[in-house]
């Protein structure tokens, strides 16, 4: 079969969470995600992880003259400095929350848990990093750090990460702040730490952990992964809500309590978002009902533009 005979596959249609939920194998799912948004973006959004030319800027006193682009000088008779986007040997550590709260699946797509969404993100980002010869690692946690795979660009790293992500969430409790502090103590190289969690924990402790990572000069991305139901609270009929991490039950009329609930949620996220902003940490809230090829590229593109 010749190249022209190959069917024109639209990978984007496989990126809908409802579709992804039907694909059990996480590696295939991640490849589909990455292929999908690469096809859609026409250029890699992960420039920041590689050693690539970014732009010229006029020479200023104090600049190292070895970065002067002499070819440009020859053509324009002006001194320009060549700038590169990032240093090489980037270490990406994907920190995935595997507590019971991540087991929540929405009312519409009951097979697609927050954990599924989080692992998809993690797998996709690992795939891209490894494809660009960067190191990728994984940390799985609930109330404690359950697994830590240190970043590496070994070709087998992808399979190791995928196998680890395929485990089911464990402990009902979560302790994100403590885990972040533990991770900060574990990894030595400056790394890009991507925290993928619903952050349903004490915000003060979470912020403390983030601060600790930043103190160790790690770059940090916080992806708060929430189900659409948690964001919208679309319940109507009288409902008994049963805690996934705690034993308490609450019988409420959701419509009457919706505003109050959303206020509490917003207060929580706002506290974390503000802290992230102050600590120069990228924060994003991820809705599990939105396809990853829409949400993820948008976020990464914005981040890249900000860091340029």
């Amino acid at each position: 079969m010749g190249k022209s005979d190959q069917p024109n596959i639209d990978y984007r249609r496989y990126l809908d969470p409802r579709t992804l939920a039907k694909i059990a194998a996480l590696d295939i799912r991640a490849r589909l995600i990455v292929e999908g948004f690469v096809t859609g973006m026409h250029r890699s959004p992960y420039r920041g992880f590689s050693v690539e030319f970014a732009q010229h800027r006029p020479y200023a006193s104090g600049d190292d003259i070895k970065y002067i682009d002499w070819k440009v000088f020859g053509r324009t008779d002006r001194h320009y400095i060549k700038q590169y986007e990032e240093e090489t040997n980037l270490q990406v550590l994907l920190v995935v929350d595997a507590s019971s709260s991540m087991n929540y699946a929405g009312q519409v797509n009951t097979d697609w848990r927050k954990f599924d969404h989080a692992t998809s993100i993690a797998a996709s980002m690992a795939y891209v990093a490894l494809r660009q010869q960067d190191g990728a690692g994984l940390a799985i946690f609930d109330s404690r750090l359950r697994h830590l795979i240190r970043p590496s660009n070994n070709p087998r790293q992808w399979r190791i990460i995928i196998e680890e992500l395929s485990t089911t969430p464990g402990e009902p409790k979560t302790d994100t702040g403590h885990v972040l502090e533990e991770i900060a103590g574990e990894i030595r190289h400056r790394s890009l730490v991507v925290l993928i969690s619903d952050l349903f924990d004490d915000p003060e402790r979470i912020i403390k952990g983030i601060r600790r990572l930043r103190h160790r000069r790690h770059d940090l991305i916080v992806l708060q992964t929430l189900d659409h139901d948690e964001i919208e609270f679309p319940f109507r009929a009288t409902t008994m809500f049963r805690g996934m991490e705690e034993a308490n039950d609450v019988l409420v009329e959701p419509q009457a309590l919706r505003d109050a609930y959303l206020n509490e949620l917003h207060r929580h996220t706002a506290q974390i978002r503000t802290a992230c902003h102050q600590l120069h940490v990228d924060y994003a809230q991820v809705d599990t009902s939105v396809p990853l090829d829409i949400s993820l590229p948008g976020f990464l593109a914005t981040r890249a533009a900000r860091m340029a």
């Binding site: 019971s100 709260s101 991540m102 087991n103 929540y104 927050k114 619903d198 349903f200 189900d227 948690e230 319940f235 009929a237 009288t238 409902t239 008994m240 809500f241 049963r242 805690g243 996934m244 991490e245 705690e246 308490n248 609450v250 019988l251 409420v252 309590l257 109050a260 609930y261 206020n263 509490e264 949620l265 929580h268």
Partner: peptide, 17 residues
């Protein structure tokens, strides 16, 4: 007569309630 829903963001709901 109500339905039962497992819920993750229980803390927010309980505080709001």
């Amino acid at each position: 007569r109500f339905r039962m829903v497992p819920w993750a963001a229980m803390e927010f709901l309980r505080v709001a309630h």
